[in-house]
């Protein structure tokens, strides 16, 4: 039982660089996941430019703008929480993460009302009003529901990720010296934010 020897390059060592690299690679996959959707959007929008424009008038630009502000602010608070943790201020860091989660919930609530309004107006696939729309407008709404829906799912996943970091900081597994997890949650949150930054103009600000 000669297990006293441990390789210096062991896979079981804590390696902050490796974990950050892994996170970046994962973000590439997320980008390509949405990239597929952006491609489909591009094709259909170039096929039906006028109908896409017409359909976009059904969205509430002010709600979209407000959500954009919320997400941008939450990106700032998560970045501040990482810096707070690195400087050793755990309490501030945790509070900033709670604010980020509150922003995520706020975003989803507004999204709920936006989607709800579409349902009330019969603008969901399968409803009579929707079925009467021309092809291009229907494609616009297919993409709207699919892309914002998938993005909403990512908001939820990002929120859960941050909850894990909060519990990690409380338990002492995420510390000012070992902050990879917090940094990775931040990276993921910025991605969620970034994708919205593209979705917002593509759906709300078309002209």
């Amino acid at each position: 039982m000669n297990h006293t020897f441990v390789l210096p390059n062991s896979g079981h060592n804590f390696d902050a660089k490796a974990s950050k690299m892994g996170m970046w690679l994962f973000l590439y996959t997320e980008l390509l996941l949405f990239g597929g959707l952006f491609l489909v959007y591009m094709v259909y929008r170039s096929m039906y430019p006028d109908e896409f424009l017409l359909a976009s008038f059904n969205l509430n630009v002010w709600m979209g703008t407000f959500n954009t502000v919320i997400l941008l602010t939450s990106s700032m608070t998560i970045a501040m929480s990482i810096t707070a943790l690195q400087k050793g201020n755990k309490k501030l860091s945790i509070n900033l993460m709670w604010i980020t989660i509150a922003a995520a919930i706020g975003f989803l609530v507004i999204k709920y009302f936006e989607w709800g309004a579409k349902f009330d107006h019969g603008l969901f696939p399968g409803m009579d009003h929707f079925n009467a729309l021309p092809t291009g407008e229907r494609l616009y709404f297919y993409l709207y529901f699919f892309m914002t829906g998938l993005h909403g799912l990512h908001v939820i996943i990002g929120g859960i990720f941050i909850l894990f970091v909060i519990s990690g900081v409380k338990k002492g597994t995420v510390t000012p010296e070992r902050y990879s997890l917090s940094e990775n949650a931040g990276l993921y949150w910025h991605l969620v934010d970034l994708i919205w930054i593209y979705l917002f103009p593509l759906f709300y600000l078309i002209h």
Partner: peptide, 11 residues
């Protein structure tokens, strides 16, 4: 590669 595991064994 001369190491004892992959970078993320749990993953």
């Amino acid at each position: 590669l001369g190491t004892d595991d992959v970078a993320f064994p749990k993953l």
